[in-house]
Nucleic acid binder design. Sequence first.
DNA 1: TAAATGACAAGTG
DNA 2: CCACTTGCCATTT
Length: 109
Amino acid sequence: MQPFTEKVVQIIRIIPPGKVMTYGQIAKLAGNPRGARQVVRILHSLSRTYGLPWHRVINAKGEVAIHDEGQSNEQMSALKQEGIEFDEYDKVDLTIYRFDPEWNDVDLI
DNA sequence: TAAATGACAAGTG
DNA sequence: CCACTTGCCATTT
């Protein structure tokens, strides 16, 4: 497995309840600012086996990016249960709910 | 080994 | 704010 993939997994695992991260943000922290699409693939294929909080990962606009309706509804209710609120366009306020690791030493985790 | 894929991002008008 | 374009790159076909 690529180091990038492994880091992405590590990062997603540390997202606390009630907070979210964006694909691009995760990719950047994992060492590849252009790897947003790889994060997508990882969530798809590894979220189950690694028990990742996949529902806390959304796109840069603050929207749930799932195309499948059933799954997107599942993600939204999961986030609501953690205290995250959606506006009338089903978007979250990233200025409030975005998780910023600040102490950014992801390599140590 | 080459081509296609994707739950994206950032820029432009 | 919306529509559209371009860049992206690990994984899958």
